[in-house]
Design a protein around this nucleic acid. Structure first.
Lengths: 200, 200
DNA sequence: TAACTTTGCTTAACGGTGTTAGATTATTTT
DNA sequence: AAAATAATCTAACACCGTTAAGCAAAGTTA
């Protein structure tokens, strides 16, 4: 009777091993290197075994995203346990979110679809790539009052802009649960806010 | 003599065809469906021919990235041509950036590494995934004055937060050209700004 | 015009991928 | 010990990116 449970526990174990092996491969060699055969190697089985625990490779990724969200929620809960002021709590939660993204970089990547496909394009120093960012940077510079016009200050504003816009775009691309009006509202609000903060 | 040029023009033509075929495949079936053989099929050649125009598959992606940046720069320039106020120009540029991202969704994806790997995870309705966002949403609700506490308003603030933080994270993950201090600065600035904007 | 060289393109192959079916081995049950 | 079940592996399929070898048409030279 109890042997059934032992066997079930063993099965759960290898299921867990598959996930751990996957994550360790990704941490060592990146998402593109993750293959069923490599996972099998790491858990000392052959590839078809994995299909008794996950219906396909995508199911492994899905489970890793789920695990990621559970971990993130835990981190956020821990972050606010010693705080009472809601404003402080909210800031602490976002900071926990931020820290999680870099502490569990690989999980964040699969959770939110952030990957660096061809970063070679940036290392190659192609001038066209700098075009748009230069345009924006220069226009921000123009707006900043002369007495504040340091490179560091403009950088900060530039990245704040970019973060808001790119963040909103990528959120819209990976999920599609927001309405167009809401997007316009957020975009207009955020951009307007930053612009007025620049001018004063 | 002139035939040399005609032949060169033909070569340039198929190079262009390769890029167009690639983009059309991606638009029809997504980035994961893009293969050398499929490109070859579309331009009515066999796969090895492509290697006479691009050293490998990655080089095609790189070139598409470059083309994307050129198109984006053009759109941004067009957007400001009728405006004189720098603040209006800056807003128009970001709006052009925003519009480009959705008009040329596939280009934006390869330019900035935004992909939806396993959006199936969200369709599956797994409750764990809603955890962190619920926590944040509720905390924001708590902060919003009672008279403003509508679902729409909280949504807007929630997405504004998320955009800033996620945007900054993904920018940091795909490139690594910002310093830690700058990041902290932008993050603190942005979050602090939104929080104060909520409380009043 | 005949032989040689270059060009354009294809076929075939290598090692890799996710995935499935069938055979084989080990374990449990009768 | 024999039969049934479970666990695991081998082999294969169809695809992937990429490269080498070969063929056939075109251009060049003698």
């Amino acid at each position: 009777m109890a042997s059934k449970e032992r066997i079930q526990r063993l099965k759960d174990d290898t299921r867990c091993n598959i996930l751990e092996a996957s994550l360790s491969i990704v941490k060592e060699e990146g998402w593109s290197a993750l293959s069923m055969r490599k996972i099998a190697d790491k858990i000392e089985y052959t590839a078809p075994i994995i299909y008794e625990y996950f219906s396909n490779k995508d199911a492994i990724l899905q489970e890793l995203t789920r695990v990621g969200y559970v971990k993130l929620a835990k981190k956020m809960q821990e972050a606010i346990v010693d705080l009472t002021d809601p404003a402080e709590q909210l800031e602490a939660m976002w900071l926990a979110y931020w820290n999680f993204a870099f502490a569990e970089k690989e999980l964040y990547q699969v959770m939110y679809g952030v990957q660096m496909n061809c970063c070679a394009a940036f290392e190659s120093g192609c001038p066209d790539i700098a075009g748009p960012s230069d345009m924006l940077w220069n226009k921000i510079e123009e707006l900043v009052p002369v007495e504040k016009r340091t490179e560091e200050y403009i950088d900060t504003k530039y990245y704040t802009f970019w973060s808001v816009v790119h963040g909103l775009i990528s959120i819209n691309m990976t999920r599609q649960l927001t309405t167009d009006e809401l997007n316009r509202q957020v975009l207009k609000d955020a951009i307007g806010g930053i612009i007025t903060s620049i001018k004063n």
